[in-house]
Computed example of a mutant assay.
Amino acid sequence: MSKNYYEVMKIRRSMYALTRETTIEKERIKEVVEHSLNYTPSAFNSQSGRVVVLFGDDHDKFWEITKNSLISSQPEDRHNDTAQKIDNFKHSFGTALFFEDYDVVEGLQNQFPKAKDNFPLWSYQSSGMLQYNVWTSLAAEGLGASLQHYNEAVEEEVKKHYNLPSKWKLMAQMPFGKPAQEPGEKEIIKAEDKMKVFGLN
């Protein structure tokens, strides 16, 4: 990675115009995801995050499952728009599926009952950090991505098709690929409207 962390934070954007090309080898993408899994913070170092990386036909199949599931629950006049939207995600190089392992979460709830209600929240927070780390790391390698949430519509069929554990909870989906165009300018709210600092002087 040649760019520094602050530069990469700026170039990590939601990119929807992606191609089926990549800037790095599949093995490097695997390394990026593995590194994020190893070093993303989690409550009690539980490492409850799980990621499924899909390429080729497996990537295509996920988006076909998603499209069919959504269309089956929608009125017919929305089918074309839905199919076009999902086919746009399918027209990318690969997809990362983010899960949380609730065997781990529930184990911590049993081990620390006084903090029982906090563990699902901490799990969500850790998952968000994992998603950001993968996304930012892919951006550092020249890949674009976006974050999608078709969780409830596809979770059970996805776990069945890819033979995933029943206690894995689907959190998000991230199609990625070589960007087809640059994103527009990002509107930044003034810092003084978002941040307060005390004791600086």
Rank of each mutant, 00 (worst) to 15 (best):
S127R: 01
Q111T: 09
G177R: 01
Q111V: 00
L147Q: 08
P183A: 04
T95Y: 09
G107I: 11
E106Y: 12
P183M: 07
A140S: 13
G94H: 03
L164T: 02
L97P: 05
G142D: 08
A172F: 11
N118C: 04
V134T: 07
K167I: 01
K169A: 09
K167Q: 13
M171Q: 15
G177W: 00
M171T: 02
P113K: 06
S166L: 10
Y124N: 04
P179H: 12
A115S: 12
V105Q: 03
Q131E: 11
Q173L: 12
M171A: 12
Y102P: 13
M171K: 11
P183W: 14
M171D: 11
Y124C: 03
E182H: 10
S126G: 13
H161F: 10
N133S: 12
S123E: 05
E106W: 04
S166D: 15
M174E: 08
Q111A: 09
Q109C: 06
E152Q: 10
E156C: 01
Q131I: 15
Y132C: 06
V134Y: 05
F119E: 00
Q173C: 06
K114W: 05
E106C: 00
E156W: 03
G128I: 00
A172E: 05
V105P: 06
K116E: 12
Y124I: 09
H161L: 02
K116L: 00
K160H: 04
A153I: 00
P165N: 10
A115R: 10
Q181R: 15
S146E: 03
M129F: 09
S166Y: 04
Y124D: 13
G142N: 03
K159C: 03
N118K: 11
L170D: 11
A140C: 01
N163M: 02
E156A: 15
H149E: 03
Q181M: 14
L143M: 12
S127I: 01
S123P: 09
K167M: 08
F98K: 05
W135N: 00
S123I: 09
Y150K: 05
L138I: 09
N151G: 15
P183Q: 06
G107D: 00
L108F: 15
P165H: 12
T95E: 07
K159Y: 12
F119M: 00
G94P: 04
A180M: 04
L138G: 01
P175L: 03
L147A: 09
K160T: 10
E182S: 13
G128L: 11
G107W: 14
A140R: 07
L170N: 05
W168H: 09
W122A: 07
V154W: 14
E155D: 06
E141K: 11
Y132D: 03
A153G: 06
V158G: 02
K169H: 15
L147E: 04
L121Y: 15
A180E: 08
N151P: 13
S137K: 04
K160M: 03
V158Q: 08
Q125D: 00
S126K: 06
W122F: 13
Q109D: 00
Y132K: 12
F93P: 10
Y132F: 14
